[in-house]
């Protein structure tokens, strides 16, 4: 059965993998605040629009999507301006949800992140979906990500006529992704904090895309963590990706990353704690309810990212 599916964030690589999986049986409408990258043509119909703009309403009016997949969260690693991120991530998401309700979309899948749980020394292993979202207390810079999550979950509880699925995946990495963690893993030498080596989970881009498709095709709704198979310490993750870990004492690393991130280099300082304390999530519920099982284990996943590094060629 062909459905009209609206996907946000289609200029990014993950949305492309999702589109590839969905396009044979569905009509895909793509939206992104960024223009499409010229090297990757998009097979569906594409609109370049901010999620807060009136143009979004026109897209909904014209296409009446049955399913909305919101993958377009803007990360702190992409845009430094917190007000822009807040507008697009919080107000934009609310706008998308309101429009979905207004135009009687059946289902919404929102991609949040495991970062909302916050990296904290007291975190236990296997954080479940009902764990408090500590990130906004520890890192105010992540408030937009937490509020995006809240906007989606409150829609989930308030409007049952719109089946809402909120996915909180661990680090998504892959050969075609250009997010912070994949970029780091593709470097020759990758920084790590000396003396700290937290366990990290990695989700292959294909597994992430399959998880999103499972959420689209099912009739279940709710909040779900999504992880890959297994976890390894960050230093080992770097080695599996074929790079060399470069240990930096943490008292030097924080000011260093702080000054680099002020120049928009490397990654924002508040993400440093994710390389210091483990934030290991449990995706037991998603596996049980959606029959999900990742096809790539953590070693394959990391190798595939490393193999895509330009310096390997």
């Amino acid at each position: 059965m062909s459905r009209t599916i609206l996907i946000t964030g289609v200029s990014g690589a993950l949305a492309r993998v999702v589109t590839e999986l969905l396009i044979p049986n569905n009509e895909i409408i793509g939206v992104d605040v960024r223009p499409l990258p010229p090297e990757r043509p998009f097979e569906g119909e594409f609109y370049c629009a901010r999620y807060t703009q009136r143009k979004m309403a026109e897209i909904f009016r014209r296409h009446k999507p049955e399913v909305v997949i919101h993958l377009g969260r803007i990360r702190g690693t992409q845009v430094a301006s917190s007000s822009y991120r807040y507008n697009q991530n919080v107000l934009g998401t609310r706008n998308l949800l309101d429009l979905s309700l207004k135009h009687s979309a059946k289902r919404v899948v929102v991609l949040s992140t495991y970062h909302v749980y916050g990296a904290h020394e007291h975190n236990h292993v296997g954080l479940s979906e009902d764990h408090p979202l500590r990130a906004s207390q520890i890192f105010p810079q992540l408030a937009d990500a937490v509020e995006l999550d809240h906007a989606a979950t409150s829609c989930l509880w308030r409007y049952r006529r719109l089946e809402t699925v909120v996915l909180r995946p661990c680090n998504i990495v892959g050969p075609s992704l250009n997010n912070m963690i994949s970029r780091l893993l593709r470097a020759r030498a990758v920084p790590r904090l000396l003396g700290y080596d937290p366990m990290m989970q990695m989700l292959h881009e294909r597994d992430a895309a399959r998880a999103i498709c499972l959420a689209v095709d099912s009739e279940r709704w709710g909040i779900y963590n999504v992880a890959g198979e297994g976890a390894v310490p960050w230093s080992k993750a770097i080695k599996h990706a074929g790079a060399r870990p470069a240990p930096i004492p943490h008292f030097m690393a924080y000011p260093l990353v702080g000054s680099l991130s002020a120049l928009n280099l490397l990654f924002p300082k508040h993400l440093m704690d994710y390389f210091r304390y483990a934030t290991v999530i449990s995706d037991k519920a998603f596996r049980n309810d959606f029959g999900y099982s990742p096809q790539y284990d953590i070693v394959d996943t990391l190798r595939s990212v490393g193999a895509s590094a330009a310096w390997h060629a």
Binding site: V125, G230, P233, I298
Partner: peptide
Amino acid sequence: VDAGGYDPWG
């Protein structure tokens, strides 16, 4: 242990 040789607690 898992595929990577570690258990989730490290």
